[in-house]
Design a protein around this nucleic acid. Sequence first.
RNA 1: GGGGGCAUAGCUCAGUUGGUUAGAGCGCACGCUUCACAUGCGUGAGGUCACAGGUUCAAGUCCUGUUGUCCCCACCA
Length: 902
Amino acid sequence: MPAPLMVDNAKIMRYNYECSRLANGGGSMKEMQTTYDPKDFEERIYAQWMEENCFRAEMDPAKIPFTVMMPPPNITGQLHMGHAMDETMQDIVIRFKRMQGYSALWLPGTDHASLATEHKIVEKLREEGTSKEELGREEFLRRAWAWKEQYGGTIVGQLKKLGCSCDWSRLTFTMDEKCSKAVREAFCRLYEKGLIYRGSRIINWCPDCKTALSDEEVEHTEDAGNFWHFAYPVEGSDEKIVIATTRPETMLGDTAVAVNPADERYARFVGKTLLLPLTDRKIPVVADEYVDPAFGTGAVKITPAHDPNDFEVGLRHNLPMIRVMGDDGSMNEPCGEFSGLDRYEARKRIVNKMKELGLLVKIEPHTHNVGHCHRCHAVVEPVVSKQWFVKMAPLAKPAIAAVMKNKTKFVPDRFAKIYFNWLENIRDWCISRQLWWGHRIPVWYCDCGETIVARETPTVCPVCGGTNLRQEEDCLDTWFSSALWPFSTLGWPEKTPEFNYFYPTDALVTGYDIIPFWVMRMMFSGIEYTEKVPFRDVLIHGLVRDEQGRKMSKSLGNGIDPLEVIEKYGADSLRLSLMTGVAPGNDTRFTETKVEAARNFINKIWNASRFVLMNVDCEIPPLGEIRLQPADRWIISRLQTAIRETTLSMQKYDLGIAADKLTDFVWSDFCDWYIELSKPALYGGDPEKKRGALGVLVFVLENILKLLHPFIPFVTEEIYGYLPGERGRIIAAEYPRYNTKLSYKKEAKTFEGIIDLIKAVRAMKTEVGCPPSRKVRLFLVTEQKRLLSVNKQSILRLAGASEIDFIEKGEEAGEKTVSHVCEIGHLFVPLGELVDIEKEKARLEKELDRVMGEIARADGKLLNKNFVAKAPQKLVDDERAKKEKYLDMKGKIEKQLRLLND
RNA sequence: GGGGGCAUAGCUCAGUUGGUUAGAGCGCACGCUUCACAUGCGUGAGGUCACAGGUUCAAGUCCUGUUGUCCCCACCA
């Protein structure tokens, strides 16, 4: 069946709208649509910003620089909610500073993410039936770069959709030549200072990724496992020593059994020799303080090549190290019949074999901490391996001192404690990775045995003159280059003008989860290489969680795609929703309800703007030429307060508070009150008054748009374009400044009395059941007659009143009145004005009957003992609650009736 | 074992350096076709600020302890 001809009305409307815009040369008020639709303009506005170079930060000596380096997302990455929040915060800060007149640089970039990317490519190769070994290094790298070209750009496009105002002309990739140069320089300097060394240590080995990992790259989880108790025979005796282990397969690498020197149970064994089962090896019993006699059997098998503690024990007792596991996690040659087996298969067989030999004493269930590769989640093996390390202690010290001395401040500052905790307990950093995608370590080995560490590829050996130099195969940990990000991006180690102008940077925005990976390392690197802290403020935010508070993750499938949210609600709504109800450093839950609330608010601004603009029919006078009315001064005063408070909050990075304050000001003060208050002037027929009101409306609106621009850049730019007069772009506009002359504190305070009065009348009506539309007559005992008279039309309109009568104290307003003491005076409203007394009495009587009936019905149940005793508790409780409610209603109705009958 | 967070309205959370009557959004109740907006307007109900002490003229806020809960780090095999 042929599809019916569909006509997309929205599309046609949009098309017509675009045509009329073009015809009018861009914007008269008539064109604004009745509802806010971000699709109409977000893309267009971003393109215009790009075209006009609005994000470019120039090295203007007349300006103060403000620099933010974007934490570079992985090239393999897709924008997720965590990014969305991180980038939004940075964009808000940078737009704010830009508007304040700083030369605001937000430098974007992407990270090569050595392990993550290589992991993905290796997987892809596996699917294609090949491997990196088969391709060889060169071809593999060619593929990796192709991958980068293909996928590295998607995240950039996604950042643009979010509205990020980064200086794209400075986009940097961590493997750009300038970064590689910085990496080599940094490596060489540390090596020359003796802070980089190569050595055989216990490191974390991922058998899946086949590379070493740093301690930070290992995630520990509580895994269920077993405690296997094995008996090792003592040489020349019938006795055995029982040890307990969680990793039976490592027993093949045991080179001793250790006991505590004070443990009397084992004292006589120390110095004796054990026959290591399943092997023909003999191993000694040694005494070492490390052993806790109270744990396990009090005797510990020592496998120096496969356990960090055992490694230490091994060093103390001069024990041999025997590696029993290969790089892929399978057992290797020294393992005899077990060699070639996967570690878990070997475990099974070893346990069986021990059982056969009668050496398996018992198996105890035991949960313990197991390290997993943060990338592939395979169980990490501690193995002894020759790797490159950075000596951390000398680097950590100044990094701690810098934060102690407040050279760098954490926001919120409690994260400084976490930072200290990390640095104070830090161990040497394993920086070599057995990977190809990354910065290759700038070390060459000569046949003569010489190791050459150089910034540029050497051609001859300085010692023997030989030319057969082999470069180190390993790459550096990705974080080694990330650590240099604040300055490698600006051309360091060259003394570039950019470096001189923009460095050190001002704010670093990131999540608390990468303090150990990144913040810490940038700190000590910055101090070490540039002798300056790399940033003044570290703004830490929390995680974006799902509606139930769970971490958003791929495996749970509970992640919400920010791009879908943008598609549905627009980037502005997403941004604002991520900023509301959020305290710095705290985790936050993402809910669609929040986005809706943000969208509703933006729609509100949209319509308020539309209202203002559709009334513009004349030249808008500058504020100075307007005879300001009390309501005008009130809103201008409120605006000044809003400016002062948001600016303060923004400077403290209290973005959530700033957003809340602005929302409140715009919605309550401006929309709900001022716009309504201004209507009599707009519609009253006096052109002078109208001009004045319009002037104030436009003035306040313009300021509102500017204040909100950092949060919701697209819609504010769009509306700004509709404002009368020549203004340019809001992105380049000056951020509003608090103006004491416009604060009108006293007058504003007095004016609040009018608002209070209007609220009192409304409440009164609601209380007695008077429809809002019913006009009532107000009687007032007051000393503010003049103020009230000036605002009479507004009061009548907003309170739904017909007249205001001033009476003197003690004077009667009528026989029956409802009264209320307001700030501005004592208010009386004749009851007859509020309600048709007879009609109201009849209504109330009827209502009372109904309520009494309900009470009787409830009593009928509740007085029935069987009901109370046998019915489900919930029903009984519900019934009681119902009765309470009706009793309450009865009281109110009776009170009201008394009032009417008096 | 060490470090840190959180506990405030039915739900999700704000709450500046201690200072009037503890706020918002959503939800709830009642009422509104008010000429920018129902993605709206008005009026409400709802809180022993986890618990127990302490400091203070004054504590949701500071201190001590208790309970509950979450996170990070750590080599008990």
